[in-house]
Nucleic acid binder design. Structure first.
Lengths: 148, 148
DNA sequence: TCCTGTTTAGGAATGATTACTATGTAGCAA
DNA sequence: TTGCTACATAGTAATCATTCCTAAACAGGA
């Protein structure tokens, strides 16, 4: 997924969004990452190019891109928001040690039957599966006594 | 799920946890709720009985119960943590309007195949499916232009 | 009953996110 | 190209959930 700044400008235009250099860079940094960065991560990545960049702008941009549907929040812990510009249906594997998030694109997961027992008028628009566990390097330091 | 305070004391003892009135009340409030309350919610619920109760204590208690495996955090948004004492395998439906969370116990969801394409040494310990959508009363006010 | 280590409560600190506001600038129209 | 206007940016300050720190209280075992 390697969008040029021109591609991004076009995309913004298609969505009726103003295209500013900051906005384009932030989006580019997010699209080119698979690490589900935080606002702070994106700020650190774009800052060298735009030293005047404000963290506020990153938050504002993410909000705007979010409500345009170009970006979605991925919430792993309650501690800080992480963002994803991968819009194809996919799921996540989360390491409970280092909090890394890996994308999972397994088509078997894309057609789960809607759950039973819901209120009749509940309208389900999407779903995501979050797998949790420990990556290779975090396996040894796994905390014990869960389930007591 | 209606545990008496005696049941709870027993449960704490089994887990090697000290049993204090505050701790028992907080846990009882959580066990008897299906609403996935926040720390603040629990505080508000237990406060009338223990007017000296500190919100700190609620947080501390939830941490202790969490690491004993009696309670788990449910993270919906990044804004605040919500808690659940329902330990049987289950999944969640989240209303994107009012942020309500409904438990889903659908056994078909309890045996998903592990995802493909993971690093070999990744050890998956659990997974949860989060369905998102809008409940009856939030359907009309659903925000437009998602996906632009 | 007494002792000890854990729990509690209060206040202060932290850190992510949001609010406010003046200045800058993209995009449109003349 | 120029000028206008509304939206974007950046800086500072505010907010709010959560954590840290500490002294006093208390549960549970000796």
């Amino acid at each position: 997924m390697n969008l040029s700044l021109d591609d991004i400008r076009q995309k913004f235009r298609d969505c009726g969004l103003k295209s500013t250099p900051q906005r384009a860079s932030i989006y580019q940094a997010l699209v080119n990452s698979t690490a589900h960065p935080t606002a702070e991560d994106l700020f650190a990545q774009v800052s060298p190019t735009y030293p005047m960049l404000s963290l506020n702008t990153v938050y504002y941009t993410l909000t705007v891109l979010g409500s345009a549907g170009l970006v979605q929040e991925v919430n792993i812990g309650h501690d800080r928001a992480r963002y994803d510009a991968n819009l194809s249906p996919h799921h996540h594997v989360i390491c409970q040690g280092c909090q890394d998030i890996i994308d999972v694109m397994d088509s078997r997961l894309d057609s789960l039957a809607p759950p039973t027992g819901l209120p009749k008028d509940f309208d389900i628009t999407s779903y995501q599966v979050a797998f949790r566990g420990y990556c290779g390097s975090c396996r040894q330091s796994q905390s014990p006594n869960k389930g007591c």
